[in-house]
Design a protein around this nucleic acid. Structure first.
Length: 490
RNA sequence: CGGGGUGUGGCGCAGUUGGUAGCGCGCUACGUUCGGGACGUAGAGGCCGCGAGUUCGAGUCUCGCCACUCCGACCA
């Protein structure tokens, strides 16, 4: 289905889709709504995983793994939770196949019907809390700070590569605490970790805030989120952290004996980010030449391309190029020397731009003579000649500069596409043009719903760092203490 | 789940009033090239999404199904 990568503004959805496919990140599986992540895409995911995993461990968490299947009865223990997920569950009803009576292929063996159906996890709160019940007796067993890297399945009606696939990879943290305060602190800490990761690794500026009641996670008391703005002016929820109160502890009867010898229900949090982050990465930074990857997450940070005619010239250049490659690697930079002879250098340039490799070095006969190297940066597509001497440290600082520049660029874009409005007319007009629209809201679900109905805009978050400012709701005129952020979203 | 679109070599597509499948890219071999997606010559590669039906004959017509995709609805 991949066509030429067209102008970004042309048809953003098509552009995005083509880019994902052409850059070799992912493709649609023959299985409905599922995604095949190709090796290059997976390499990016591995970088994301590694960075996040370290951050989790630095904040005291450990990894574990829980079952894929959730007995149906577990899911229904928490009323809101099951309500929220019931419509998108894959259900296992049988455990065996048999040869078809008509001799063609296999059919489900009706004899093998399960006593109780198993749900393929859409998220793991229930299976984990049914386990935590056995892990927790005393306040001495708390807190439990566990994360799992896993795949989950949500049978969405409409799917989109990386952004909303039927099956996706993610991490989900599930923590258990003795007190309300400690659990809230954990929830806030983890949304902070996500924001930190988004800005420092993905180079993606995010708004940190809380969801409104209607946008909350099913079963949560409070949902914190990070929200990012894509280049087409739509918002993307990039990560969430939930304060679950005692809902799951009560549903699964998880109590501990406090210091004072009293039985208390445990307080919970859960938090997650998924392969959707890759979608965010692509949509936020890419241009018409392809991906633009932040150096910290680029599987390949530097590529060296020789320009030559004849084997003799190539040999000389290769010696030099491999030296430079070793110098780069000595500084911890991932580098590749591409001496393929079956494609020309121009082809390689275009190919690595498509794949988002942050820095490209080209060495030709002229450079060999002058002791120079052509350095091209992916973010600006600018080229410059630098001396070969000391090139590795120049590249190292250039990589830092690119990381920073991509972030600044995205942040500038967001600033230019964030608008404060004070009337509903202004609001309607602005929301059509995309971007974050910041306005006063009376805090009622009714008004929120009305706005959604009429403009397709949702409240992305109540910003954490928003200034306190008395105002009036753009719809009802009722008083409001703080502006909230609206946008159309993915 | 509703509305539109698309399923034909690996990828992108063409295929007239039904007559036994073609183009570009890629792939293989050889040669010439090489500072921004090279060119020539010769090759290889197809249950035309699946299943019924109409017909002497179906990529093409009819019916059913499936998948993908876009727009809605839905979406921690």
């Amino acid at each position: 289905m991949a066509k030429e990568v067209t102008n970004i503004s042309d048809n953003y959805a098509q552009w995005y889709n083509d880019l994902v496919v052409k850059a070799g990140l992912a493709e649609n599986s023959a299985v409905r709504g599922c995604m095949v992540i190709k090796p290059y895409g997976y390499a990016i995911w591995e970088k994301i995983q590694a960075a996040l995993d370290k951050m989790f461990k630095d904040t005291g968490h450990v990894n574990a793994y829980f079952p894929l299947f959730i007995p149906k009865s577990f899911l229904s223990r928490e009323a809101e939770h099951v309500e929220g997920f019931a419509k998108e569950c894959a259900v296992v009803t049988h455990h065996r196949l048999m040869s078809s009576p008509d001799g063609k292929g296999v059919v489900v063996d009706p004899q093998a019907k399960l006593e109780e159906e198993l749900i393929v996890r859409p998220t793991s709160e229930t299976i984990i809390w049914s386990t935590y019940k056995n892990w927790i007796q005393s306040y001495r067993d708390l807190p439990i700070l566990v994360n799992q890297w896993a795949n989950v399945v949500r049978w969405e009606m409409r799917t989109r590569l990386f952004l909303r696939t039927a099956e996706f990879l993610w991490q989900e943290g599930h923590t258990a605490h003795a007190t309300r305060e400690e659990a809230i602190e954990e929830t806030e800490k983890m949304i902070g970790v996500y924001a930190d990761f988004a800005e420092n690794f993905l180079a993606l500026p995010v708004l940190v805030g809380k969801k409104t009641a209607s946008e909350r996670f099913a079963g949560a008391e409070d949902t914190y989120c990070i929200e990012a703005l894509m280049q087409d002016g739509k918002a993307l929820q990039a990560g969430t952290s939930h304060f679950l109160g005692q809902n799951f502890a009560k549903a699964f009867d998880v109590q501990y004996v406090s210091k004072e010898g009293k039985q208390e229900y445990v307080w919970a949090t859960s938090w997650g980010v998924s392969t959707r982050l890759m979608g965010a990465l692509i949509m936020a930074h890419s241009d018409n030449s392809g991906l633009v990857l932040p150096p910290k997450l680029a599987p390949l940070q530097v590529v060296i391309v020789p320009i030559y005619k004849g084997a003799e010239e190539l040999t000389a250049i290769s010696v030099r190029a491999n030296e430079i490659k070793r110098q780069l690697e000595a500084l911890g930079i991932t580098a590749k020397y591409d001496d393929r002879d079956n494609v020309r250098s121009g082809f390689k340039f275009a190919e690595y731009e498509l794949k988002g490799v942050p820095v490209r070095l080209a060495i030709g006969p002229r450079d060999m003579q002058n002791g120079t190297v052509e350095v091209a940066r992916r973010d600006t597509l600018q080229k410059q000649l630098l001396p070969q001497e000391n090139i590795a440290s120049c590249v190292a600082s250039l990589l830092n500069e690119i990381q920073e520049n991509i972030f600044v660029k995205a942040k500038t874009f967001r600033a230019e596409n964030t608008f404060e409005v004070n009337t509903y007319d202004e609001f309607k007009q602005q929301i059509e043009k995309g971007g974050f629209v910041v306005a006063h809201w009376d805090g009622t679900p009714e008004t929120e719903e009305k706005i959604k109905e009429e403009t397709k805009a949702t409240i992305r978050c109540i910003p954490r760092d928003g200034k306190q400012e008395a105002g009036r709701c753009i719809v009802t005129g009722k008083p409001s203490a703080q502006r909230v952020v609206f946008a159309r979203s993915y």
